[in-house]
Amino acid sequence: MSATTSPRRLAFAPNWPMRLALLALAVYTVWASTRLGLTWDRVAHGMGEGAKLLGRMVPPNFERWQLLLEGLLESLQIAVLASALGILISLPLSILAARNLSPLWIAGPVRGVIAVCRSLHYVIVAILFVKAIGFGALAGTAALVVASVGFIAKLFAEAIEEISMKQVEAIRATGAGVMKVIAYAVLPQVASRFIGFCLYQLDSNLRNSTLVGIVGAGGIGGTLFAAFKRFDYDFVAAILLSIIALIFLAEIISGRVRAALR
């Protein structure tokens, strides 16, 4: 037994499965690129076009600032309304979807609804709403409400499932009804996380509300898309810069709020 040569232990042994996986990934990349018509010529040509496009975007043209401000304000309104409605709807939904509080025959279907809300991209939802209820901010708000429900309700339901049941039992033992159990035993345990999710969703609603206009659902996105179609690239640059500034500002504010809450 001792005579068998033990293989010399390498300090850095080659990881063959990983190497093969990386090789497969490289082969796939080349194959898929050729399938999509993504050749080096095209990329090189695109670089030149990209430089031209950038040249036309500079300097940004802020002449139509009224149009810009109007669009940004509408985006902000959509974001605020969609967040408020989304929070209101997802609060009861997430309690219904929490498996430790509601029976499975309620939690299952509610979870399904939430999963569907989350799986469909908000732009697709926005298109459907635009087709069903017409152009404008209403469609954008409705689409973002769906997206907000998908996000907040899922995470909040998971947060509720992690609570300690001892407090729930204690409040139940006093003879409290369902609403009182929720108000005094469930919500105090998860309120801070709920506020965190809501803040995050407000942030991402603001990002998304600047975009739903591309499909006609109101906000600055419509202005952006129109400018793109008219090849007003200097105005496009102005809009993009103001969107980035708005999002940056929102991120700073929500960061401050989150720090203050802690």
Binding site: L73, L76, Q77, L81, A84, G134, A137, L138
Partner: peptide
């Protein structure tokens, strides 16, 4: 503010 000023038909 959002409810009052948003452009919803």
């Amino acid at each position: 503010w959002a409810v009052r000023s948003i452009d919803i038909i």
